[in-house]
Nucleic acid binder design. Structure first.
Length: 436
DNA sequence: TCCACTGGCACTTTTGAACTGA
DNA sequence: ATCAGTTCAAAAGTGCCAGTGG
């Protein structure tokens, strides 16, 4: 599997889809609105995929209305049911690590954003059903502001604190497997754990740009490409899981979130109570440093109280173990060995790799011999209940799959970026480095 | 003075090249 | 020559914390 950043370094890991939204957006609703119910899902920002189809460059229209403000994070008793909007009949998505997300959501999920980009944790990992085994699909993820408010941690809870910053450039993360067959996507959960969030408005890496102290909602889009490298698209399904809503921060505000992250994220293992980077050990290190190198050498031998234990990997996007006290939802059984994948997304790229990424036409085609993605066969560590997704409200705006030609115009409220479109037989050589 | 933000730190996990042996 | 398994160092991902600046 390949990361878009590898395929097209100039584009980064995600793709800019249009100019920044205007500062004053009347569609933002007052932050103090009560209740929360999702309106029709607004359209995903997918015009980049069609960049080579239409020659003229246009600007994106104003964003669709945003949903009313939900209750403050950490205070909502139960998130509303997952909603979906699509023109892919029978297709449904379920959040694999739903229990973990719910646990974070119950506290008020916070996501660190940094200048260099920070991964989301938990990551969005979904299972999809109902796809055409032979058809090819793109999996996309974007993050949209939930409301027009800026938030502030008031010691116990998040509360609106003023008007939101101007909306930032819209970017979409394209799953590195895209495009791949329905059989490929349904073979194992689809993980977006490599998505990175940044607060750098001039970010050159293609990370998703967010404002700090704002509330966001990740969305997942599934696009069917009836014919690779053509403008005929077979439909789209958009999903969002309310429990994945989060507030972006540059430093954790809620100590309970910090505890959850440390307990659940393997990379933060060192900060656990028995870790070598826990507060007790850090304090001890400071004391040893103050006492000089000799004391450090003698005490270091006896301080190895870190547990051995199994290796918990982030390969699947989330945790494999956790502190049972801190994160009961993480006590799911360890994943069983993954079934091998019979095919890979290389097939899709072989046919026309650059068509979906706007890659320069001079690039050679991708090497078909890359190894199977490490986590593509990794089963979800959780046996989360499957969400049965219902199609969005009738007449919600998405064209029927039988009218693929209208798909483009629907998404292209504005126009595509003028990116080159590779001609038939173009090559893309991305080596053999698997990214997933 | 407050507070959001930054950069460096120590630690852990992941990754891939190099090596070994069948 | 090929392939699978192991080892190890570098890269990458964590939260913490002191310092900075608006």
């Amino acid at each position: 599997m390949y990361h878009p950043r590898e395929l097209y370094p100039s584009l980064g890991t995600s793709y800019r889809l249009g100019p920044p939204q205007p500062v004053a957006d009347s569609s933002f609703l007052p932050a103090l609105a009560e209740g929360y119910h999702y309106p029709d899902l607004d359209t995903p920002k997918l015009d980049c995929f069609l960049s080579g189809i239409e020659a003229a460059s246009r600007t994106l229209a104003a964003p669709p209305p945003l949903p009313p403000l939900p209750p403050a994070l950490g205070t909502e008793p139960s998130p509303p049911a997952t909603e979906a909007l699509h023109s892919l009949p029978g297709v449904s998505l379920s959040l694999e690590n739903q229990e973990l997300w719910k646990e974070f959501n119950s506290v008020g999920t916070e996501m660190i954003i940094t200048k260099a980009g920070r991964r989301m944790f938990p990551a969005c990992r979904v299972s999809v059903t109902g796809l055409d085994l032979e058809a090819r699909y793109l999996f996309l993820l974007d993050v949209v502001p939930v409301d027009g408010a800026r938030y502030r941690w008031q010691g116990r809870r998040w509360e609106p604190s003023g008007k939101a910053e101007p909306r930032l450039p819209d970017r979409v993360y394209i799953h590195p497997d895209s495009p791949a067959t329905g059989a490929h996507w349904m073979r194992q959960p689809v993980s977006f754990h490599r998505v990175k969030l940044t607060n750098s408005t001039l970010d050159p890496h293609g990370h998703l740009i967010l404002h700090s102290m704002h509330k966001y909602q990740p969305r997942i889009h599934l696009v069917r490409a009836t014919q690779l490298c053509s403008q005929h698209w077979g439909g789209v399904a958009s999903f969002r899981f309310p429990e994945t809503m989060f507030i972006s921060v540059t430093a954790y505000q809620n100590p309970r979130i910090t505890q959850l992250k440390i307990a659940a994220n393997p990379f933060a293992k060192g900060f656990r109570e028995n870790g070598r980077n826990c507060k007790r050990e850090r304090d001890a290190r400071v004391k040893r440093k103050l006492r000089g190198p000799e004391a450090v050498a003698t005490e270091a031998c006896g301080s190895g109280d870190a547990p051995g234990g199994p290796c918990d990997s982030t390969l699947g996007g989330d945790i494999r173990e956790s502190d049972p006290e801190q994160a009961p939802a993480l006590r799911e059984a360890a994943p069983a060995p993954a079934p091998p994948c019979g095919s890979s997304s290389a097939e899709a790229y072989l046919l026309h790799p650059a068509a979906f990424h706007g890659a320069p036409s001079h690039l050679p085609t991708r090497n078909p011999s890359f190894p199977q993605a490490p986590d593509s066969g990794c089963p979800a560590p959780y046996s989360a209940a499957s969400l049965e997704l219902q199609p969005g409200p009738g007449g919600s705006g998405y064209p029927a799959a039988a009218h693929p030609a209208s798909f483009a115009s629907h998404f292209l409220q504005g126009g595509p970026l003028p990116l080159p479109y590779p001609g038939p037989g173009a090559y893309l050589d991305v080596g053999s480095k698997p990214m997933y």
